[in-house]
Amino acid sequence: MANDVSNLQIDQAASFAGMAFLGCTPRMKFGSENQQDITKDGRLKWDLEILCGVRNQLQQKVENRVFKVGMSSRSNPGEGFEMFDKCELRDFTVGVSEKQRRHENGAKELTGVSVWFTASEIVRVGESVTAEAA
């Protein structure tokens, strides 16, 4: 893998016993404490915290994990949600890319991977229409 990036769609029904909203905060520009980051087309960047009951197929049990999920929106996508509201994420995706270190001789060394999660919108379980997420 030479600086490959892989994005995989997450099958929420197969992967999780349930999901609950914990919170939503603005993603700040790198190095800034008070300026929210934006996309190239002007949408604000947000970080959602989602509690997921992850199905552990090997041990036949459910393990709770908190996922930080990136989302861009013109307004706060968590507005109107209360903590622990059951939710679903549209276009829930995991991304993976290589971390490399470049040596003085120009050689590259794989040092690990970066993993991130994104979604296009958040909805309450059972709802099909949401406020603008685009």
Rank of each mutant, 00 (worst) to 15 (best):
F84M: 15
A131K: 13
N3M: 10
D41N: 12
V66P: 11
N7V: 07
G31C: 00
R101G: 10
E82G: 15
Q9H: 14
A134N: 01
A20R: 12
K29D: 02
E33K: 08
S75N: 08
V62W: 01
K108L: 13
T130H: 10
V62Q: 12
E82M: 15
D37P: 01
I10E: 04
G23L: 06
K45E: 05
E82A: 15
K61A: 03
V96L: 15
S6K: 15
I50G: 14
Q9L: 11
W116I: 07
K68Y: 00
M1C: 11
K61I: 00
E98G: 13
A134D: 08
D11A: 14
V129M: 14
R27L: 06
M28Y: 01
V113I: 12
Q36Y: 02
E104I: 12
L22H: 00
G23F: 00
K29E: 04
N3I: 01
E63P: 10
W46A: 09
L58N: 07
R124K: 08
K29R: 08
V123E: 04
M71H: 07
G31W: 00
F92A: 08
G70L: 04
L110D: 08
V125H: 14
G80H: 03
S114W: 03
S73F: 00
D91A: 10
Q59V: 06
Q57P: 07
F117N: 12
I38M: 11
N34T: 02
T130F: 06
S73W: 01
T130E: 14
R55L: 15
R27M: 04
M83Q: 08
K29P: 02
G95I: 01
V66Y: 00
I10D: 03
T130S: 14
E63R: 12
T25V: 12
R102V: 07
E98P: 04
V123F: 07
R27N: 04
G95T: 03
A2Y: 00
T39L: 06
F67W: 01
V125L: 14
F92K: 11
N105C: 05
K68L: 06
D41A: 13
P26G: 08
S6T: 06
R65D: 05
G126R: 09
D91Q: 09
V123C: 12
E88Q: 12
E98F: 00
Q100V: 07
K68E: 04
E109W: 01
T130M: 13
F21H: 01
F30M: 10
G78M: 04
R43E: 05
K108T: 06
R65Y: 09
L51E: 14
S73L: 02
D4T: 11
N64Q: 14
K45F: 01
S72F: 07
W46N: 07
S75Q: 05
A133Q: 09
E79K: 09
V94M: 15
N7P: 09
V113K: 12
Q57C: 08
C52M: 08
C87R: 05
L22R: 13
S114A: 10
T93I: 07
A133I: 02
A107D: 09
G126W: 05
C87A: 05
G80A: 05
E79C: 06
R102D: 09
A133H: 13
A119H: 00
N7E: 14
E88V: 15
E104G: 14
C24E: 02
R55T: 08
V5K: 11
D37S: 14
A107C: 10
